[in-house]
Simulated scan of single mutants.
Amino acid sequence: MDAPGRARREARIATFVGLASLASAMGIGRFAFTPLFPLMQDSAGITLAQASWIASANYLGYLVGAVASYVAAVKAPLAARWGLVVVAASTLLTAFADTVARWVVLRLVAGAASAFVLIGASAWALALLARSQRLRWSGWVFAGVGVGICLAGLTALVVASVGASARWAWVGLGVLAAAVAALGWRAFATMDAAVRPARPRGLGALDAASWTLILCYGIFGFGYILPATFIPAVARAIVADPRVFAWAWPLFGFAAAVSTIAVSHLARHAKPGAAAGCSFIVMALGVFLPAVGTGLGTLCLSAICVGGSFMVATMACLQQAQRVAGDASGGLIAAMTAAFALGQAVGPLTVTAAAPLREAIARPSAVAAALLLVAGIALLWCEGRTARK
Protein backbone atom coordinates (compact mmCIF):
# COMPACT_ATOMS: atom_id res chain seq x y z
CA MET A 1 0.00 0.00 0.00
CA ASP A 2 1.39 3.42 -0.95
CA ALA A 3 1.88 6.25 1.57
CA PRO A 4 -1.39 8.11 0.79
CA GLY A 5 -3.30 4.84 1.09
CA ARG A 6 -1.71 4.04 4.44
CA ALA A 7 -2.47 7.54 5.70
CA ARG A 8 -6.10 7.23 4.63
CA ARG A 9 -6.46 3.84 6.30
CA GLU A 10 -4.79 5.10 9.46
CA ALA A 11 -7.13 8.08 9.59
CA ARG A 12 -10.21 5.88 9.14
CA ILE A 13 -9.16 3.53 11.93
CA ALA A 14 -8.32 6.45 14.22
CA THR A 15 -11.71 8.03 13.53
CA PHE A 16 -13.70 4.84 14.11
CA VAL A 17 -11.80 3.72 17.20
CA GLY A 18 -11.86 7.25 18.60
CA LEU A 19 -15.63 7.49 18.03
CA ALA A 20 -16.27 4.11 19.68
CA SER A 21 -13.96 4.89 22.60
CA LEU A 22 -15.65 8.20 23.40
CA ALA A 23 -19.06 6.54 23.01
CA SER A 24 -18.13 4.02 25.69
CA ALA A 25 -16.23 6.35 28.00
CA MET A 26 -18.67 9.24 27.93
CA GLY A 27 -22.00 7.72 26.89
CA ILE A 28 -21.62 4.84 29.36
CA GLY A 29 -18.81 5.59 31.80
CA ARG A 30 -19.97 9.15 32.36
CA PHE A 31 -23.63 9.49 31.45
CA ALA A 32 -25.27 6.07 31.77
CA PHE A 33 -26.76 6.97 35.14
CA THR A 34 -28.69 9.92 33.67
CA PRO A 35 -31.23 7.90 31.62
CA LEU A 36 -31.26 5.06 34.17
CA PHE A 37 -32.02 7.26 37.18
CA PRO A 38 -35.80 7.33 36.51
CA LEU A 39 -35.75 3.52 36.16
CA MET A 40 -33.77 3.15 39.38
CA GLN A 41 -36.28 5.40 41.12
CA ASP A 42 -38.90 2.76 40.28
CA SER A 43 -36.90 -0.45 40.74
CA ALA A 44 -34.55 0.55 43.57
CA GLY A 45 -36.33 3.49 45.20
CA ILE A 46 -33.44 5.94 44.70
CA THR A 47 -34.21 9.44 45.96
CA LEU A 48 -33.14 12.77 44.46
CA ALA A 49 -30.57 13.27 47.22
CA GLN A 50 -29.06 9.83 46.63
CA ALA A 51 -29.01 10.41 42.88
CA SER A 52 -27.16 13.69 43.38
CA TRP A 53 -24.45 11.92 45.37
CA ILE A 54 -24.15 9.07 42.86
CA ALA A 55 -23.86 11.57 40.00
CA SER A 56 -21.37 13.75 41.87
CA ALA A 57 -19.27 10.69 42.73
CA ASN A 58 -18.98 9.93 39.04
CA TYR A 59 -17.98 13.50 38.27
CA LEU A 60 -15.54 13.51 41.20
CA GLY A 61 -14.03 10.34 39.77
CA TYR A 62 -13.66 12.17 36.48
CA LEU A 63 -11.73 14.88 38.32
CA VAL A 64 -9.50 12.30 40.01
CA GLY A 65 -8.84 10.61 36.67
CA ALA A 66 -8.00 13.88 34.94
CA VAL A 67 -5.57 14.93 37.68
CA ALA A 68 -4.00 11.46 37.78
CA SER A 69 -3.55 11.50 34.02
CA TYR A 70 -1.86 14.88 34.24
CA VAL A 71 0.42 14.00 37.17
CA ALA A 72 1.33 10.47 36.07
CA ALA A 73 1.98 11.52 32.45
CA VAL A 74 0.43 8.31 31.13
CA LYS A 75 0.92 7.71 27.42
CA ALA A 76 -2.27 8.38 25.47
CA PRO A 77 -2.78 4.86 23.98
CA LEU A 78 -2.13 3.19 27.34
CA ALA A 79 -4.57 5.49 29.13
CA ALA A 80 -7.25 4.77 26.53
CA ARG A 81 -6.76 0.98 26.51
CA TRP A 82 -6.97 0.38 30.23
CA GLY A 83 -9.52 3.11 30.77
CA LEU A 84 -11.93 1.33 28.43
CA VAL A 85 -11.41 -1.95 30.31
CA VAL A 86 -12.20 -0.31 33.65
CA VAL A 87 -15.30 1.41 32.22
CA ALA A 88 -16.63 -1.97 31.06
CA ALA A 89 -15.84 -3.75 34.33
CA SER A 90 -17.32 -1.07 36.58
CA THR A 91 -20.48 -0.84 34.46
CA LEU A 92 -21.06 -4.60 34.61
CA LEU A 93 -20.48 -4.63 38.38
CA THR A 94 -23.01 -1.81 38.81
CA ALA A 95 -25.69 -4.16 37.51
CA PHE A 96 -25.14 -6.43 40.52
CA ALA A 97 -24.64 -3.78 43.20
CA ASP A 98 -27.56 -3.33 45.57
CA THR A 99 -26.68 -0.42 47.85
CA VAL A 100 -26.17 3.29 47.32
CA ALA A 101 -22.64 3.07 48.75
CA ARG A 102 -21.62 0.50 46.14
CA TRP A 103 -23.20 2.51 43.33
CA VAL A 104 -21.27 5.57 44.52
CA VAL A 105 -17.96 3.67 44.50
CA LEU A 106 -18.52 2.04 41.13
CA ARG A 107 -19.63 5.24 39.44
CA LEU A 108 -16.62 7.03 40.93
CA VAL A 109 -14.35 4.40 39.38
CA ALA A 110 -16.15 4.65 36.04
CA GLY A 111 -15.77 8.43 36.09
CA ALA A 112 -12.02 8.20 36.70
CA ALA A 113 -11.61 5.70 33.88
CA SER A 114 -13.65 7.84 31.49
CA ALA A 115 -11.29 10.77 32.05
CA PHE A 116 -8.31 8.63 31.08
CA VAL A 117 -10.13 7.53 27.93
CA LEU A 118 -11.22 11.03 26.92
CA ILE A 119 -7.73 12.46 27.35
CA GLY A 120 -5.95 9.47 25.85
CA ALA A 121 -8.27 8.59 22.99
CA SER A 122 -8.87 12.18 21.85
CA ALA A 123 -5.16 13.07 21.94
CA TRP A 124 -4.32 9.82 20.09
CA ALA A 125 -7.00 10.26 17.42
CA LEU A 126 -6.38 13.97 16.84
CA ALA A 127 -2.63 13.38 16.48
CA LEU A 128 -3.19 10.66 13.88
CA LEU A 129 -5.70 12.77 11.97
CA ALA A 130 -3.33 15.74 12.02
CA ARG A 131 -0.48 13.55 10.74
CA SER A 132 -2.61 12.32 7.87
CA GLN A 133 -3.89 15.87 7.18
CA ARG A 134 -7.49 14.87 7.94
CA LEU A 135 -8.13 16.87 11.07
CA ARG A 136 -11.50 17.85 9.57
CA TRP A 137 -12.65 14.33 10.46
CA SER A 138 -12.36 15.16 14.15
CA GLY A 139 -16.09 15.89 14.23
CA TRP A 140 -16.74 12.19 13.71
CA VAL A 141 -14.49 11.32 16.63
CA PHE A 142 -16.30 13.65 19.02
CA ALA A 143 -19.66 12.52 17.64
CA GLY A 144 -18.92 9.34 19.58
CA VAL A 145 -20.06 11.06 22.78
CA GLY A 146 -23.48 11.78 21.29
CA VAL A 147 -23.67 8.28 19.83
CA GLY A 148 -22.92 6.78 23.24
CA ILE A 149 -25.49 9.00 24.96
CA CYS A 150 -28.08 8.08 22.35
CA LEU A 151 -27.37 4.35 22.71
CA ALA A 152 -27.56 4.57 26.51
CA GLY A 153 -30.85 6.45 26.25
CA LEU A 154 -32.31 3.96 23.79
CA THR A 155 -31.22 1.11 26.05
CA ALA A 156 -33.10 2.71 28.94
CA LEU A 157 -36.11 3.26 26.65
CA VAL A 158 -36.22 -0.41 25.61
CA VAL A 159 -35.80 -1.68 29.18
CA ALA A 160 -38.50 0.67 30.48
CA SER A 161 -40.89 -0.21 27.66
CA VAL A 162 -40.74 -3.95 28.42
CA GLY A 163 -41.07 -3.36 32.16
CA ALA A 164 -37.65 -4.79 33.06
CA SER A 165 -35.52 -3.49 35.93
CA ALA A 166 -32.62 -1.07 35.53
CA ARG A 167 -30.21 -3.96 36.23
CA TRP A 168 -30.70 -5.29 32.71
CA ALA A 169 -29.85 -1.92 31.23
CA TRP A 170 -26.59 -1.88 33.20
CA VAL A 171 -25.79 -5.39 31.93
CA GLY A 172 -26.45 -4.42 28.32
CA LEU A 173 -24.33 -1.28 28.56
CA GLY A 174 -21.55 -3.21 30.29
CA VAL A 175 -21.44 -5.77 27.50
CA LEU A 176 -21.36 -2.97 24.92
CA ALA A 177 -18.48 -1.27 26.77
CA ALA A 178 -16.57 -4.56 26.89
CA ALA A 179 -16.98 -4.95 23.12
CA VAL A 180 -15.54 -1.47 22.56
CA ALA A 181 -12.59 -2.24 24.85
CA ALA A 182 -11.83 -5.35 22.83
CA LEU A 183 -12.17 -3.42 19.57
CA GLY A 184 -9.77 -0.67 20.58
CA TRP A 185 -7.17 -2.82 22.31
CA ARG A 186 -5.13 -3.69 19.22
CA ALA A 187 -5.45 -0.30 17.54
CA PHE A 188 -4.16 1.57 20.59
CA ALA A 189 -1.35 -0.95 20.97
CA THR A 190 -0.10 -0.90 17.37
CA MET A 191 -0.77 2.59 16.00
CA ASP A 192 1.79 5.07 17.32
CA ALA A 193 0.43 8.62 17.36
CA ALA A 194 3.65 10.08 18.78
CA VAL A 195 1.68 12.03 21.39
CA ARG A 196 3.82 13.54 24.10
CA PRO A 197 2.56 12.57 27.58
CA ALA A 198 1.04 15.27 29.74
CA ARG A 199 3.91 16.24 32.04
CA PRO A 200 3.33 18.49 35.03
CA ARG A 201 4.98 21.81 34.30
CA GLY A 202 3.71 23.85 37.24
CA LEU A 203 0.98 26.46 37.10
CA GLY A 204 3.48 29.18 36.31
CA ALA A 205 4.18 27.57 32.94
CA LEU A 206 0.65 28.31 31.73
CA ASP A 207 0.15 31.54 29.80
CA ALA A 208 -2.93 33.80 29.80
CA ALA A 209 -4.56 31.99 26.87
CA SER A 210 -4.19 28.66 28.68
CA TRP A 211 -5.66 30.06 31.89
CA THR A 212 -8.62 31.50 29.99
CA LEU A 213 -9.34 28.10 28.49
CA ILE A 214 -9.03 26.37 31.85
CA LEU A 215 -11.38 28.82 33.60
CA CYS A 216 -13.99 28.77 30.82
CA TYR A 217 -13.83 24.99 30.61
CA GLY A 218 -14.45 24.77 34.35
CA ILE A 219 -17.52 27.01 34.00
CA PHE A 220 -18.62 24.78 31.12
CA GLY A 221 -18.48 21.75 33.45
CA PHE A 222 -20.62 23.46 36.07
CA GLY A 223 -23.00 24.96 33.54
CA TYR A 224 -24.07 22.03 31.41
CA ILE A 225 -24.21 19.33 34.09
CA LEU A 226 -27.66 20.12 35.50
CA PRO A 227 -29.59 19.30 32.32
CA ALA A 228 -27.08 16.53 31.55
CA THR A 229 -27.93 14.91 34.89
CA PHE A 230 -31.62 15.59 35.42
CA ILE A 231 -33.34 16.02 32.02
CA PRO A 232 -34.84 12.47 31.93
CA ALA A 233 -35.97 12.75 35.57
CA VAL A 234 -37.62 16.12 34.93
CA ALA A 235 -39.31 14.65 31.84
CA ARG A 236 -40.58 11.78 33.99
CA ALA A 237 -42.07 14.32 36.42
CA ILE A 238 -44.00 15.84 33.51
CA VAL A 239 -45.04 12.63 31.72
CA ALA A 240 -44.95 9.36 33.66
CA ASP A 241 -45.10 7.09 30.60
CA PRO A 242 -41.54 5.75 29.97
CA ARG A 243 -42.30 5.47 26.26
CA VAL A 244 -42.49 9.27 26.27
CA PHE A 245 -40.11 10.63 28.94
CA ALA A 246 -37.32 8.19 28.02
CA TRP A 247 -36.92 9.88 24.62
CA ALA A 248 -35.46 13.01 26.25
CA TRP A 249 -31.97 11.53 26.62
CA PRO A 250 -31.68 10.00 23.13
CA LEU A 251 -32.76 13.41 21.77
CA PHE A 252 -29.93 15.00 23.77
CA GLY A 253 -27.44 12.48 22.36
CA PHE A 254 -28.71 12.75 18.80
CA ALA A 255 -28.30 16.53 18.91
CA ALA A 256 -24.77 16.10 20.26
CA ALA A 257 -23.74 13.66 17.51
CA VAL A 258 -25.27 15.63 14.63
CA SER A 259 -23.93 18.98 15.81
CA THR A 260 -20.30 17.86 16.01
CA ILE A 261 -20.37 16.39 12.52
CA ALA A 262 -22.25 19.37 11.06
CA VAL A 263 -19.96 21.96 12.63
CA SER A 264 -16.80 20.12 11.58
CA HIS A 265 -17.98 20.20 7.94
CA LEU A 266 -19.95 23.43 7.66
CA ALA A 267 -17.73 25.58 9.86
CA ARG A 268 -14.37 23.98 9.21
CA HIS A 269 -12.75 27.37 8.59
CA ALA A 270 -14.11 28.91 11.80
CA LYS A 271 -11.59 29.60 14.55
CA PRO A 272 -12.03 27.14 17.43
CA GLY A 273 -12.13 29.98 19.97
CA ALA A 274 -15.05 31.60 18.16
CA ALA A 275 -16.85 28.25 17.79
CA ALA A 276 -16.43 27.60 21.51
CA GLY A 277 -17.77 31.04 22.43
CA CYS A 278 -20.87 30.70 20.26
CA SER A 279 -21.58 27.20 21.56
CA PHE A 280 -21.34 28.46 25.16
CA ILE A 281 -24.00 31.08 24.41
CA VAL A 282 -26.36 28.52 22.85
CA MET A 283 -25.75 26.25 25.82
CA ALA A 284 -26.59 29.10 28.21
CA LEU A 285 -29.99 29.38 26.57
CA GLY A 286 -30.61 25.65 26.89
CA VAL A 287 -29.57 25.59 30.55
CA PHE A 288 -31.79 28.60 31.32
CA LEU A 289 -34.96 27.20 29.74
CA PRO A 290 -35.87 24.73 32.55
CA ALA A 291 -35.65 27.62 35.01
CA VAL A 292 -38.48 29.49 33.28
CA GLY A 293 -40.55 26.80 31.57
CA THR A 294 -42.15 23.59 32.83
CA GLY A 295 -43.60 22.04 29.67
CA LEU A 296 -42.30 19.02 27.77
CA GLY A 297 -41.69 21.18 24.69
CA THR A 298 -39.46 23.54 26.69
CA LEU A 299 -37.55 20.55 28.04
CA CYS A 300 -37.04 19.11 24.56
CA LEU A 301 -35.76 22.48 23.33
CA SER A 302 -33.38 22.55 26.29
CA ALA A 303 -32.14 19.07 25.38
CA ILE A 304 -31.53 20.15 21.78
CA CYS A 305 -29.71 23.37 22.78
CA VAL A 306 -27.50 21.77 25.41
CA GLY A 307 -27.01 18.49 23.55
CA GLY A 308 -26.33 20.33 20.32
CA SER A 309 -23.74 22.63 21.88
CA PHE A 310 -21.90 20.82 24.62
CA MET A 311 -19.88 18.54 22.33
CA VAL A 312 -19.23 21.37 19.88
CA ALA A 313 -17.87 23.30 22.87
CA THR A 314 -15.77 20.31 23.92
CA MET A 315 -14.39 19.77 20.42
CA ALA A 316 -13.68 23.46 19.88
CA CYS A 317 -12.00 23.89 23.27
CA LEU A 318 -9.78 20.84 22.77
CA GLN A 319 -8.83 22.08 19.31
CA GLN A 320 -8.09 25.48 20.82
CA ALA A 321 -5.86 23.75 23.37
CA GLN A 322 -3.92 22.12 20.55
CA ARG A 323 -3.73 25.51 18.83
CA VAL A 324 -2.41 27.19 22.00
CA ALA A 325 -0.05 24.47 23.26
CA GLY A 326 0.91 22.56 20.11
CA ASP A 327 2.60 19.20 20.74
CA ALA A 328 2.32 19.75 24.50
CA SER A 329 -1.48 20.00 24.33
CA GLY A 330 -1.91 16.85 26.39
CA GLY A 331 -0.91 18.69 29.54
CA LEU A 332 -3.23 21.61 28.89
CA ILE A 333 -6.10 19.26 28.00
CA ALA A 334 -5.58 17.39 31.28
CA ALA A 335 -5.64 20.66 33.27
CA MET A 336 -8.78 21.79 31.44
CA THR A 337 -10.42 18.43 32.08
CA ALA A 338 -9.63 18.71 35.78
CA ALA A 339 -11.29 22.14 35.94
CA PHE A 340 -14.25 20.82 33.97
CA ALA A 341 -14.62 17.85 36.33
CA LEU A 342 -14.46 20.06 39.41
CA GLY A 343 -17.24 22.24 38.02
CA GLN A 344 -19.49 19.33 37.16
CA ALA A 345 -18.87 17.59 40.50
CA VAL A 346 -20.23 20.68 42.28
CA GLY A 347 -23.23 21.09 39.94
CA PRO A 348 -25.57 18.31 41.16
CA LEU A 349 -24.90 19.20 44.79
CA THR A 350 -26.47 22.63 44.22
CA VAL A 351 -29.84 20.94 43.65
CA THR A 352 -31.72 20.82 46.94
CA ALA A 353 -33.70 17.70 47.77
CA ALA A 354 -36.18 19.69 49.87
CA ALA A 355 -38.18 20.86 46.83
CA PRO A 356 -39.78 19.10 43.86
CA LEU A 357 -37.23 18.43 41.13
CA ARG A 358 -38.47 21.07 38.68
CA GLU A 359 -38.33 23.73 41.40
CA ALA A 360 -35.04 22.45 42.81
CA ILE A 361 -33.11 22.95 39.57
CA ALA A 362 -34.55 26.38 38.69
CA ARG A 363 -32.18 28.64 40.64
CA PRO A 364 -28.98 26.62 39.96
CA SER A 365 -29.91 26.57 36.27
CA ALA A 366 -30.25 30.35 36.15
CA VAL A 367 -26.86 30.82 37.83
CA ALA A 368 -25.24 28.29 35.50
CA ALA A 369 -26.73 29.97 32.44
CA ALA A 370 -25.36 33.36 33.52
CA LEU A 371 -21.86 31.96 34.03
CA LEU A 372 -21.95 30.24 30.63
CA LEU A 373 -22.99 33.47 28.96
CA VAL A 374 -20.08 35.33 30.55
CA ALA A 375 -17.62 32.59 29.56
CA GLY A 376 -18.90 32.57 25.99
CA ILE A 377 -18.46 36.32 25.67
CA ALA A 378 -14.95 36.03 27.14
CA LEU A 379 -13.95 33.39 24.59
CA LEU A 380 -15.29 35.50 21.72
CA TRP A 381 -13.44 38.57 23.04
CA CYS A 382 -10.16 36.64 23.32
CA GLU A 383 -10.57 35.30 19.78
CA GLY A 384 -11.25 38.80 18.48
CA ARG A 385 -8.20 40.15 20.24
CA THR A 386 -6.06 37.38 18.72
CA ALA A 387 -7.42 38.11 15.24
CA ARG A 388 -6.51 41.82 15.58
CA LYS A 389 -2.88 41.05 16.40
Rank of each mutant, 00 (worst) to 15 (best):
G45Q: 06
I219R: 00
F340C: 08
A335N: 02
F31D: 00
I238C: 07
S52N: 14
A375M: 11
L380M: 13
G308K: 11
D327W: 07
L299C: 09
F310A: 01
T155Q: 04
T212I: 13
A152F: 02
G65N: 09
S24H: 06
V109S: 10
F310R: 01
V351E: 01
L372P: 00
R323G: 07
A194I: 07
L19F: 12
F254R: 03
A339M: 14
A267Y: 13
C300N: 11
I13M: 12
R186Y: 11
F116V: 12
A362E: 09
F340D: 05
F37G: 00
L126T: 07
A32K: 03
T260Y: 05
R12L: 15
L371T: 10
G293F: 14
A366D: 06
A44N: 11
L154S: 02
G326S: 06
A256L: 12
A14W: 02
G204I: 08
A284R: 06
V87E: 07
A115Y: 05
L126M: 15
K271I: 12
A66W: 07
F280S: 02
A193C: 10
P348Y: 04
F142V: 01
A177T: 10
L183F: 13
A360N: 03
R201V: 14
I225N: 13
G174N: 11
L63M: 14
V374W: 08
F142K: 00
L318D: 03
T229V: 14
A313W: 03
A235H: 00
L301Q: 08
R8G: 10
K75F: 05
A209E: 14
A32H: 03
A228R: 00
A205V: 10
A370M: 08
G120P: 09
A25V: 05
V171K: 04
G347N: 09
L213E: 11
R12C: 10
H269K: 15
Q344H: 04
A313K: 01
A240V: 11
I13S: 09
G139C: 02
P250H: 07
V234E: 12
V282G: 12
V175N: 05
C216S: 15
A164D: 10
A248H: 03
W124D: 01
M283R: 04
V234I: 15
A130G: 07
H265N: 13
A178T: 10
S24W: 08
L60V: 15
R30Y: 04
F222W: 11
I46P: 00
G111S: 12
G297A: 14
V158F: 12
A335E: 09
F16Y: 12
E383D: 15
G331N: 12
I219K: 02
P250S: 09
